[in-house]
Design a protein around this nucleic acid. Structure first.
Lengths: 112, 112
DNA sequence: TTGACAGGCAACAATTTTGTTGCCTATTCT
DNA sequence: AGAATAGGCAACAAAATTGTTGCCTGTCAA
């Protein structure tokens, strides 16, 4: 359950979302490839990838001196299942008239 | 597009997700009601709600000296549409054999 | 075997976040 | 009018994030 934390946290950063986008465009890139074009040092990118890896949004495999990064859709799927659905399936309560709210509230104190 | 940032950021914090959960359980609560039971000062909760409001995840309405907070599912719906779908619809590329990757790669250098 | 390349680790600084306390205004109730 | 209640604002401290630089190990290739 506190798994969500790592995932949401990882997704909260724009640079990390961009890294996911880059992997979406081409899966299995190395650290160097992912760094190219980004205005960040290799080390910074490495740490971002570390966060994504910690959240299991990215899975890696090392081969020789290279490390390949792959998207893992599972955590996003989980977030989707146990979070997004919950809030999007519910009727649009924000449109409930405040008047109704207040009436219900006052009924508890002043029954009609 | 950089709207996502506010939403992801707001969702990144566990306390804020708990506030959303509380509103999910009962919509239209006041600041005091939302604070009750949380181990945080009213001001801290107020700032969290401010972040949620900034991301439009929560909509408020003031009546007299009370401020009522309502869930707004729209931003989550947007995230869902333009983000979650993208990553969950794609086939599970993480299961692509690295061997294939490497072969493709080496084909570029050492054509068979 | 020597040099170039891929990546990891650690120390550091700058910035942001999170929560606290203290004090203020506005509204409601007696 | 006076007291209690709901909430807002600002200053502050502690902690976490983000990026940098410097240096190290392991791998590949000439």
């Amino acid at each position: 359950m506190r798994d969500d934390d790592a995932v949401f946290n990882a997704l909260a950063d724009g640079s990390r979302r961009e890294l996911l986008d880059r992997l979406y465009a081409r899966d299995g890139q190395t650290l160097r490839e992912l760094t190219a074009g980004l205005q960040m040092s290799r080390q910074a990118v490495s740490r971002h990838l570390g966060v994504l890896e910690g959240a299991e949004l990215v899975v890696t495999r090392r081969s020789g001196r290279e490390k390949f990064h792959f998207l893992n859709p599972v955590p996003i799927q989980l977030i989707h299942d146990r979070w997004i659905d919950k809030y999007t399936e519910r009727p649009v309560t924000a449109l409930v008239d405040l008047k109704t709210e207040l009436e219900q509230r006052h009924d508890l104190i002043d029954p009609p």
